[in-house]
Simulated assay, not measured.
Amino acid sequence: MSKLSQWAPRLLVVLGATFGLAACSVSIDGNDYKSIEPTFDINQFFNGQVRAWGIVQNRSGEVVQRFIVDIDGRIETGELILDETFTYGVGDGPKTRIWRIEQQAPGSFIGNAGDIAGPATGTAFGNAFNFRYEMDLPVDDTEYRVAFDDWFWAFDEQTMMNRSYIKKFGLVMAEVTIFMQRQE
């Protein structure tokens, strides 16, 4: 038996595992959205009343949460404040959250909320906005420190979509899909 035929099965297992792990991660390049209209302005969109409808899906695609979020946004001394109230149809989670978001430089933001571990960093990319942060996420009787890769895309001046990838060890463990609409 040749050395190649001895190593071939092992090589196939390693390659299969590598491709399998790569399929569990998501990599979005914000630069792809810089020239797409309409431009998403986080301060403009959230300054006022916004209603959002969302789901959380686990790794198997099962919907483990379904919720509505009412967001009362305002700008005070240059800081965007988002006062969020959650109502759950499936599953459970936080009832409220208050975000405080400040622009650091053109297209660069820092955000904080009570249940977020450390600051969230935000970057504007034309039509898209990316927020990255960590959170201690309760699951059953345990809490897990997870990373959120949170993407917003503007549809028009009144509507946008949000897609969050919840990651542990760089692998996507759950996905959140939210549609948001400004309220008059």
Rank of each mutant, 00 (worst) to 15 (best):
D140T: 09
Y133Q: 10
A124K: 09
N47L: 01
V64E: 07
P38D: 06
T39N: 15
R74H: 04
I55K: 03
E37V: 13
N162A: 11
L137V: 04
G170R: 02
I75D: 01
G30C: 13
A154L: 10
V69S: 13
K168W: 04
T121R: 12
Q65V: 07
T121W: 14
F109V: 04
A52E: 07
W53C: 09
D140Q: 12
A124W: 08
S35W: 06
N58A: 01
E62G: 09
E102F: 06
W53D: 15
Q104N: 11
N127L: 06
F46H: 03
A120K: 09
P119C: 11
W151S: 05
F148C: 09
N162G: 10
I42Y: 05
V90A: 00
P119I: 08
A105C: 02
D136Y: 04
A105K: 07
I110Y: 15
W99P: 05
V139Y: 08
K34D: 15
M135H: 12
P94H: 08
D141H: 05
Q49S: 08
N112P: 08
T87I: 08
D136E: 15
I81V: 07
Y133V: 09
F125N: 10
T39P: 07
Q104Y: 08
R66A: 13
F45W: 00
A105Q: 02
P119A: 12
F46A: 06
S35E: 14
Q158L: 14
V139N: 03
M135T: 05
E79I: 09
D141T: 12
G78K: 02
C24N: 08
G114H: 11
D32H: 04
S35T: 15
V63C: 02
V26F: 02
N127W: 11
D140W: 03
I110V: 11
F155M: 14
G30A: 08
T77P: 05
A23H: 01
A23F: 01
W151H: 04
A124E: 14
N162D: 15
F155C: 14
W99K: 02
D141L: 02
Q103V: 06
T87F: 12
T96C: 11
G73F: 08
P119W: 02
N112S: 12
P106Y: 10
D32Y: 05
V139A: 03
E134W: 07
P106L: 09
V139K: 00
D149Q: 03
A124S: 15
E84Y: 02
D156G: 00
G93N: 06
